[in-house]
Simulated assay, not measured.
Amino acid sequence: MNSQSGLSGWINMMGSILIILAGFKLFVLAVHGSQEFNYYYVNEMTNWTNAQAYCRSNFTDLVTIADQKELKEILDNLTRENYSDAEIWIGLKDINMTNGTWSNGETFTYRNWNKGDPNNNFVSCGCMYYHRNETNHNGTWNDCGCRHSQTFICYAVKRKFHAVNNPMTWVSAFQYCNSNYNGMATIRSGREEWYLLKYLNETQIWEKVWIGMRSSMIFGHWFWMNDDPVTYQNWINDSSKVSQNTCFCTSLDLNQKKWARQDCAERAPFVCYTDN
């Protein structure tokens, strides 16, 4: 095949994909529940690669299912919206018997394989069984041929981070975030921290960055300035220790991927956020 015909074939292929994706009908799952993500069920049949391309173009990616709680949330929403039984693409790829990876790069730790699966002798992609009136197989996974046509679920991260590589004191950074965004970044879970670290790695910031937590001089504990509950903490050694009549602020150490107690008068880059 010459280069001109090869280019023509590639253009025709991409054009076909765009035509297919443009025709997808989107059905938003009514109750999202998760504080970090929204889920979107796309009730159109396509292969895994096209599903991934659509999710990445319009949302974040094909859905990653990190634990039983998230699986139940997705299934409950499908049932509430009265969707028909189906095999649904999820973001699991490169399955070679027991191995696999998530499309977004998260570590593959939680598994919910159907009995006897995965059993495909070829590298395959992940789909989820949805059966409204069945308990044994509802939500279990199968390793499917990636070219099969199935409906799929996308997800979108609710909170968008904005790094500012202009060192400021914590108070100045806090004021800047409130004036230009929704506020200074908070971290509500390990998965949200994973997304923040991934984003910061792409911004080429390699040092400590301010986040929106400080200590209370009255009560001697840590709190988020936007009133998010403190549901997750990831301190370096004993950095979390504070006492009454003292005030410290929190930075995220990008080398250690942990939080550090820091003098609020020091200067550092910082991270703001907006809620989608």
Rank of each mutant, 00 (worst) to 15 (best):
Q68N: 05
S215A: 02
L71G: 08
Q175P: 00
G105H: 10
W113R: 04
S240H: 07
N112C: 02
C127L: 11
D143A: 05
G23Q: 11
G9D: 13
I187H: 07
Y41A: 04
N182I: 00
L252F: 04
L196H: 12
W10R: 14
A66V: 13
S215R: 07
T107Q: 08
G15S: 10
N166Y: 08
I153H: 00
N58W: 00
T135D: 10
H137M: 11
T250H: 05
A268Y: 15
W48Y: 03
T101S: 13
L71Q: 06
S251I: 14
N180G: 06
D76M: 06
S215G: 01
A53R: 09
M13N: 14
M14K: 10
T79G: 08
M45V: 15
Y83H: 09
Y41R: 04
I205M: 01
A268D: 07
H148Q: 14
G220A: 01
L254I: 02
E202A: 13
Q244A: 10
V123T: 15
H162E: 05
L200C: 01
T231N: 04
A51I: 04
N255E: 10
K93C: 11
Y155I: 06
M97Q: 12
N201P: 11
Y83E: 09
Y273N: 04
G145A: 12
S3P: 03
N2M: 04
V123Y: 06
E70H: 01
R159I: 13
L252T: 01
I187F: 05
Q233K: 12
N182Q: 07
I20A: 08
C144R: 11
P118E: 03
R214W: 01
I20W: 00
C55M: 01
D67H: 00
Q52W: 00
A260K: 15
